[in-house]
């Protein structure tokens, strides 16, 4: 009997059946979300990548490409400070008549290198301790986390000043200080990510299968923790750069006569404030840091958008 209609516009109350070819149609279950799109940089991300590559290039090859040594005087016959930009010194000279551009090129490697090494150290320590605390169980976790909380509740720059006062400033000290101070934040992040993964059923499944701790950490936890942690690296790097250059600006970072961007701002600030002298010796290094950190930030934005924006950008 055909008491139904196949007309889509069937009136209310009528029995409509969509035409079908056979009784044996396969009604496929819908696939879950398609594999996540490959990571792609946006336009601003590309701009950031170009800026950062530029500075990394300068950081590595700067000392070879710079027209002068960082402490050379480009115009040995003219000892006047703060000379305006001219041929032979495109960015002018500084308080001690040194070439600003050469000092920026020398300083690039130092600023980026110290910050990078400090961040890597912070990551190494923070991740090992953080994942360790997540795996080791409540007691270890509580003790390490409490100590970490005490350190994290100190303003970084103050802690940096106290440490540098105590042990004196040198490049290794700066790296270790930055590493230890920022380890606290990486620890917190790594622990949170580790904890989140630890309660996943697949980790429990591995445990109840009888797997050892090494397998669980390396095969179950780490592959899942790596991505969010790596995407946070850029952000941490920005904060370490700001930290190191602030210390240098306060005179507690890289020591003269070596060149460092933060230090350059400090050295030339007096003349900048009293106006009239050249602006470039202060503006150029400050701008150098700003472009570097904003460049990194542009890349970080793309990464965190890709990762779903759930990264802890606030810290």
């Amino acid at each position: 009997m055909s008491d139904f209609t196949t007309d889509k516009k069937a009136g209310h109350g009528e029995h409509y059946v969509r035409p079908f070819e056979s009784e044996e149609i396969a009604f496929e279950e819908l696939q879950d979300a398609a594999p996540s799109a490959r990571f792609k940089l946006s336009v601003s991300g590309w701009i950031g990548a170009i800026i950062v590559s530029f500075w990394v290039f300068i950081g590595v090859f700067g000392p070879f490409l710079a027209p002068y040594h960082e402490n050379d005087l480009p115009f040995p016959d003219d000892y006047s400070e703060y000379q305006a930009p001219k041929e032979g010194a495109f960015l002018g000279t500084d308080v001690e008549d040194r070439d600003v551009m050469s000092r920026i090129m020398y300083g690039a490697g130092r600023t980026i290198g110290i910050a990078f090494a400090g961040t890597v150290l912070a990551y190494f320590l923070g991740v090992v301790l953080g994942i360790g605390a997540a795996v080791a169980g409540p007691w270890v976790d509580m003790i390490v986390s409490r100590i970490n909380d005490a350190f994290i509740s100190l303003p970084t720059i103050m802690l940096g000043l106290v440490v540098v006062t105590a042990v004196g400033s040198s490049i290794p000290v700066l790296i270790v200080t930055a590493g230890l101070i920022y380890m606290t934040i990486v620890y917190r992040l790594a622990r949170a990510i580790g904890m989140e993964i630890m309660v996943m059923d697949y980790v429990e499944a591995a445990k109840v299968r009888g797997e050892g701790i090494w397998w669980i950490v390396t095969k179950e936890i780490w592959p899942n923790a790596a991505m969010p942690l790596i995407s946070d690296f850029g952000l941490r790097l920005i904060y370490v750069i700001l930290f190191i250059s602030s210390l240098s600006f306060l005179g507690m970072g890289v020591q003269p006569p070596q060149a460092d961007w933060g230090l350059m701002v400090r050295e030339n600030l007096g003349a900048f404030q009293t106006y009239g002298a050249s602006l470039l010796p202060v503006v150029a290094p400050a701008l150098a840091i700003a472009t570097l950190t904003v460049g990194i930030n542009l890349i970080v934005d793309d990464i965190s958008a890709h990762a779903g924006g759930k990264l802890t950008k606030a810290m």
Partner: peptide, 22 residues
Amino acid sequence: SVSLVAVPDFFTATLMVLIFVF
């Protein structure tokens, strides 16, 4: 605001001086 978060405080200060003074 995202850009300002990423720059050092003395850069912001320099900007202020450049704009409001010079």
